[in-house]
Simulated assay, not measured.
Amino acid sequence: MDDRETADRLQIAEVLARYAYAIDSGDWDLLDEVFTPDAMIDYQTAGGIRGTRAEAKIWLADVLANWPGRLHLIGATRIAFEAGEARVSASFADTLAPSRELVSADSKGLIQGGGWYHHRMLRTADGWRSRELVEEQSWRTIQ
């Protein structure tokens, strides 16, 4: 692995971290630093929408308001560079809680799940950005 590939991998890891932070904090405009303006985002396996970056931001803000306690962990990441793009698959685990306050583990509305985020990323003038995200929901529990 040369220095350029190492730098690319670190920058892509930062994009994944930025995505998790945007979702968990509700900083929806930070998603502009994750996705290209024409990105297609697909949350259908989790019961969500498939839409543009702008549509996804509106949908996320509306739906996730019901779970103010949020934590996404990004784990095993596979990056394959091909023809100026990067195919990125990263495992995730998430918890959505009905409150940011202490709640019992059996509280109604607590959701936990996991799966894979599959990105198609491009190097842009502003750094790596995702042009496509497909969430592959592997499991989900709901209280």
Rank of each mutant, 00 (worst) to 15 (best):
R9V: 00
R9A: 08
R9E: 13
L10G: 11
L10W: 14
L10S: 10
Q11P: 05
Q11M: 14
Q11V: 05
I12N: 01
I12K: 07
I12E: 08
A13V: 07
A13Q: 15
E14D: 15
E14H: 15
E14C: 10
E14M: 14
V15E: 00
L16W: 08
A17F: 13
A17W: 07
A17L: 14
R18C: 14
R18Y: 10
R18M: 12
Y19G: 04
A20I: 11
A20R: 12
Y21E: 15
A22P: 11
A22H: 10
I23N: 10
D24L: 14
D24Q: 13
D24V: 15
S25K: 14
G26K: 11
D27G: 09
D27F: 08
D27H: 12
W28E: 08
D29C: 08
D29W: 11
L30E: 15
L30H: 13
L30Y: 10
L31I: 07
E33T: 10
E33I: 01
V34N: 00
V34W: 01
T36F: 01
P37Q: 11
P37W: 04
D38K: 10
D38I: 04
A39I: 06
A39P: 06
A39V: 03
M40W: 13
M40D: 12
M40I: 13
I41A: 02
I41S: 08
I41Q: 00
I41N: 09
I41T: 05
D42N: 05
D42R: 03
D42A: 02
D42L: 03
Y43P: 07
Q44A: 06
T45P: 06
T45M: 12
T45W: 06
A46C: 09
G47Q: 04
G47D: 02
G47N: 05
G48M: 05
G48H: 02
G48P: 05
I49N: 01
I49R: 06
R50L: 02
R50Q: 09
R50Y: 01
R50A: 05
G51E: 02
G51K: 01
G51L: 01
G51V: 00
G51T: 06
G51N: 05
G51R: 07
T52I: 05
T52R: 08
T52L: 09
T52Q: 02
T52K: 02
A54P: 03
A54L: 11
A54Q: 13
E55N: 04
A56C: 10
A56K: 05
A56Q: 09
A56L: 11
K57W: 03
K57V: 00
K57C: 02
K57I: 03
I58L: 12
I58C: 07
I58G: 02
I58R: 14
W59T: 06
W59A: 02
W59I: 07
L60H: 13
L60K: 13
A61C: 08
